[in-house]
Design a protein around this nucleic acid. Sequence first.
DNA 1: GTGCGGTCATTTGTACACAACATCATGCAC
DNA 2: GTGCATGATGTTGTGTACAAATGACCGCAC
Lengths: 230, 230
Amino acid sequence: MAGGGKREARSRFERIYALLRSRICLLDYPPGMRLREEDLAEEFATSRTPVRRVLARLEDEGFLRSVHGVGTIVTDIDIDSLQQVYQLRVELAELVGKLSPVRPDAARLEEFRALLDRCDRLKGEPDAREFARINMDFFHLLMTLTANEPLREFSERLYYQTTRIWLKTAARLTRYEDMLQAEIRFFRHEVADIVAAIESGELETVGHIRRSHVAMSFARLYAEAHPQSP
Amino acid sequence: MAGGGKREARSRFERIYALLRSRICLLDYPPGMRLREEDLAEEFATSRTPVRRVLARLEDEGFLRSVHGVGTIVTDIDIDSLQQVYQLRVELAELVGKLSPVRPDAARLEEFRALLDRCDRLKGEPDAREFARINMDFFHLLMTLTANEPLREFSERLYYQTTRIWLKTAARLTRYEDMLQAEIRFFRHEVADIVAAIESGELETVGHIRRSHVAMSFARLYAEAHPQSP
DNA sequence: GTGCGGTCATTTGTACACAACATCATGCAC
DNA sequence: GTGCATGATGTTGTGTACAAATGACCGCAC
């Protein structure tokens, strides 16, 4: 076996899937947008069939909704309907570091530290999109701290479902520069805390830190959407 | 709109999906079995296309594995690889009753109580398949105790992935009658405990009870597969 | 007898044509 | 002018033919 045929087909599927999901989560495909299977097929130089395979999965995961005769529509999100998702995300965050914890090696640890530099650079030139990307890389690094496959899979699902709401909320604010700056500071603090916890080998502490930060992040978003009454 | 066209297509998809998943979990389709898309298409009086949509989802969820040129194969399972799945299942079990708890109404409560009768009847005529079915009904009833949609979805995924191992282990034992009787007793005890907790309004306690029973169930299975050394 | 190569049957993956369905514009009746 | 029927247009869902890939079988050389 030359080792390429079938694996190539599979990797292509994963590539298209990851790309489309990324576009949805970065709001390149904003909620409500209609995707055309034929356009996507043309972009990836294939027919509708493999594209439909990807769209079906994204629909199963709640990112899309295909309606016969109408189109494939990016699902809408709002902070209220995501409350349950966040509640579960908070719980799962704590489980990372508790179930099948994996101590990172030197190289992995260096990747964590590199995020601190990226945060600092971002502070000089704030950009919501770049922030979202760093946040995503950080998340994936965190997932390497547990070997529990189902936990990783579910956490990833919840993460991608909730990450859109941040960019959407930020885009709505008239002066979102302040919020962005503040969020970047919060985030850098979280990364620093977690790096410290990792360095002292307290993987379970990582889970607790992460849990509280996810919860607080949601609280801030929620407050932003629901101006408090006296 | 006469209200039937598209919804019918969707309900058909769900029906086929639930049926195939059920067959896999009840070992009607045992691990390693090869399914033929064309056969399934014929059974459901349709073409391969809708069947492939269902198989793709079952593959995404880890029940099947399609191999080009070979067939669609029911995935194998073993107690060791399911350890992580069980660990997460235990944690999620506790969250039911904690996240968005829903107090059951009188009718729902009656359904719980009815399970006790089914258990008692089962004691008189032990049957692994019927036991698995009661267990499944009980699980679905438990899911009505939380309104957290993602939690329900994930719990369901983990439940179906782990339920197969029980029947598989039981089928292997030479004298599985004893084990079955014992398991039925354990299970009836669990149902009774949980009914009592529900009646006193302690939904969070339900989660704790469930957690410990799932954990102990796994421990028994694990011990069965790994004869203890002194 | 054994190992190797090729041929064939079988099955999933892909491409494409067509059906089902929803939406919007158009025009006609009143 | 308004309301409704009707057709045009566009999109996803389904059926089907064909390509790609795998494994089994057979025959042949040695």
